[in-house]
Simulated scan of single mutants.
Amino acid sequence: MNPGDVSADSDPFRQYLANLGQDIEPGSGFFLPGTVFWRVSREPVLLLAGMRALLLQIAHPKIAQGVADHSRYREDPLGRGIRTFTAVYSLVFGDRDAAVEAAMRVRAVHNRVHGLVVDPLPSGMDPVYDANDPDLLLWVAATLLDSSVVAYELFVEPLSAEEKEQLYQQFKRFGQLFGIPEQRYPESWVDFRNWWDGMLRSDTLTVTDTARSIYRGLLTGTWFTRVLAPFNYAMAAMLLPERLAASFDMRRSLPVRFTFRAIVATARVVVRLLPRRLRGVSAARRAEHRHCA
Rank of each mutant, 00 (worst) to 15 (best):
A68T: 02
F93V: 06
A102K: 12
R290G: 07
S188M: 01
Y168S: 06
D209H: 08
D69C: 04
E25T: 15
N111H: 11
R226P: 06
A64V: 01
N2F: 14
V207T: 05
S41K: 02
T222I: 02
L200E: 07
F37I: 05
T143I: 07
G21K: 03
R105P: 06
P12V: 01
S71L: 10
A245E: 03
L55F: 12
V227E: 02
A49S: 12
L273E: 10
A141L: 15
N132K: 09
V88K: 09
V45K: 06
V36E: 11
A64G: 10
A265V: 00
G79Y: 13
P255F: 02
V156I: 14
N232I: 03
G221Y: 00
P77N: 06
I214C: 11
W189C: 04
W38A: 00
K172D: 06
V106N: 04
R216G: 09
Y185S: 06
W38I: 01
R105F: 13
R257F: 04
V40M: 08
L177A: 07
D133N: 13
G221N: 01
E182M: 05
R276Q: 13
A68C: 05
L177M: 15
R80N: 10
Q176I: 05
D203A: 13
L47S: 07
L159I: 10
F231T: 13
S188K: 02
A49E: 05
F31I: 09
G221Q: 00
Y152S: 02
R52C: 08
R286P: 06
E153Y: 12
Y185H: 10
V271K: 09
G21D: 03
T222N: 01
L47H: 09
L159P: 04
F85W: 15
E288Q: 02
P26D: 11
F192G: 07
V271T: 15
R272C: 09
Q183S: 15
G221E: 00
G81C: 07
T206H: 10
L46E: 02
S90P: 09
R286E: 14
P12L: 04
D197G: 10
D76V: 01
